[in-house]
Amino acid sequence: MNIVQDLFKSIRIVVALWILTAVLYPLLTWGIGQTLFSNQANGSLVLNAQGQPIGSSLIGQPFKTDRYFWSRPSAIEYATLPEVAKTGASGASNLAPSNLALFDRIKPEAQRLRQSNIKPTADMLYTSGSGLDPHISLESAQAQIPRLSQARGMEPSRLQELINQAIDDRILWILGEPGVNVLKLNLSLDQK
């Protein structure tokens, strides 16, 4: 079998497999996805009363003001920086556990939490993997109840109730780790 023969066979098989895997397969899955799971397929966007998207139920948002439950620190500010406004972004700190820069970042963060009378928890000090983590731990959410109660004048028990409603639990009671969806929680604060 000479090289030229192989070359022609290769070109033809590449075209055939390309049509199958890069055209037909995406087209079919796109069609089914858009038809059956339209919301999920388009990014699980959350709309406000005016029908404008205010976020995605799967994507975290930066919350820093007193009126909201704070979210985890993000290395990319939850893709709200102007330079990525067109495309969006994801990213992490990639700091090694032995890197002093990690402590330089964590120390003031812990300080800030302590000043707000919040006991620092691991997830509120460590940046997330994606920079878009929609969750905080239950413990971290509960630690913020006094602060929110003061800022919003809400009963702590009511806040606890809202937290419970915003928990994305394990799937089938076993898969994954539970976390409080901060956007969902904060939306419910606004909707009270």
Partner: peptide, 19 residues
């Protein structure tokens, strides 16, 4: 699974987030 481009949203705190 969509061919629509990046979604721009205004977050609860008023920032512009690119999803």
């Amino acid at each position: 699974e969509t061919w629509a481009g990046t979604a721009q949203v205004t977050t609860l705190e008023g920032a512009t987030q690119a999803i």
